[in-house]
Amino acid sequence: MKFGKRYSKATVLMAMLHGVVIGIAAVALIGLVLFMARGKDEPSASGKEVPTGGPAAVETPEAAPTPPEKTLSLFAKQHGAFSTAEAAAVFIAEDPSLTKAAVIHAGDSYFVWSAVGVKEGEIETSDYEGTYRKAFSVNTSACGAIGAGKLNDVLAETEIGQIKNLTAQQNEANEEGEMKDFYKNLTSITTFTTDMRILRLQLLSHYSSTNNCVKFTF
């Protein structure tokens, strides 16, 4: 006796096709679930990690740029350059015309200058004297720590009357502290010269040799 039921070829083929479709759909569904789960674990496309919990990330602000140091361009009347302060001093002592000259120590050299101007035309040179005009820049930022914070302003000034008014006002106010020495130096210089070129020279000589707060650039 036969208990099996006969199926036509068309029925068998449809059953097989139905099974294939169901299998493909199942694989596609599993793949979609895995893709979505992977997308949640990976960082965002921007390259920045996205926290899944806890406080939001805080970006550290960039540090503010350091302002450039203030420099002043000047011109000097130079008579010579020496390797020692003694040699420069002897050179000045041997020339009576250099009574108001000064020694400027910059780097490894000692320069003999007799005038400092803010403009090139202020400095006259002479082949007979053997002098020439030397351009340079100074930075006096470090002088503020010793009470000479106004040195740069005084060096840039062109009228001796403005300097005298400044020292008179400070003397009336009886300025004390570190600034007192600065105004005292100004008063001393203006008692023997009214030439701003000499005043600049003497200030540069004093604060570059005694206090070493003037930075020269040639």
Rank of each mutant, 00 (worst) to 15 (best):
M1E: 12
M1L: 15
M1C: 14
K5P: 00
K5T: 02
R6I: 07
R6C: 08
Y7T: 06
Y7S: 11
S8D: 05
K9F: 09
A10M: 06
A10L: 07
V12S: 07
L13A: 13
L17A: 10
L17Q: 05
H18V: 13
I22A: 15
I22D: 13
G23Q: 03
A26R: 00
V27S: 00
L29E: 00
L29D: 01
L29A: 01
L32D: 09
V33H: 07
L34R: 03
A37N: 06
R38G: 00
K40D: 02
K40L: 11
P43A: 15
A45T: 09
P51R: 10
G54T: 10
P55N: 08
A56S: 11
A57Q: 12
E59F: 02
T60C: 12
T60D: 11
E62Q: 14
E62W: 03
T66F: 14
P68I: 09
E69K: 10
K70H: 00
K70A: 06
S73N: 03
A76S: 00
Q78F: 00
G80S: 00
G80Q: 02
A81T: 03
F82W: 13
S83G: 09
S83I: 06
S83P: 00
A87R: 03
A88W: 05
V90M: 12
L98N: 06
T99P: 02
A102D: 00
V103G: 04
I104C: 09
A106D: 02
G107Y: 13
S109H: 12
S109N: 12
Y110Q: 00
V112D: 11
W113Y: 15
S114F: 13
S114Y: 13
V116P: 01
V116L: 04
G117T: 07
G121F: 08
I123C: 11
E124T: 03
T125S: 10
Y128D: 10
Y128N: 09
Y128F: 14
E129I: 02
T131F: 08
Y132A: 14
R133C: 08
S137Y: 07
T140Q: 09
A142K: 12
A142S: 14
A145V: 02
A145W: 05
V154N: 00
V154L: 09
L155I: 07
E157A: 05
T158P: 05
T158G: 12
E159D: 12
K164V: 15
N165I: 02
N165W: 06
L166D: 10
A168K: 15
Q170H: 11
E175H: 10
E176Y: 15
G177Y: 08
G177F: 12
G177N: 06
M179E: 09
F182V: 01
L186Y: 03
T187C: 14
T187H: 13
S188I: 05
T191C: 06
F192W: 09
T193M: 14
R197W: 01
L199V: 10
Q202W: 15
Q202E: 09
S205E: 03
H206N: 14
T210F: 10
T217L: 15
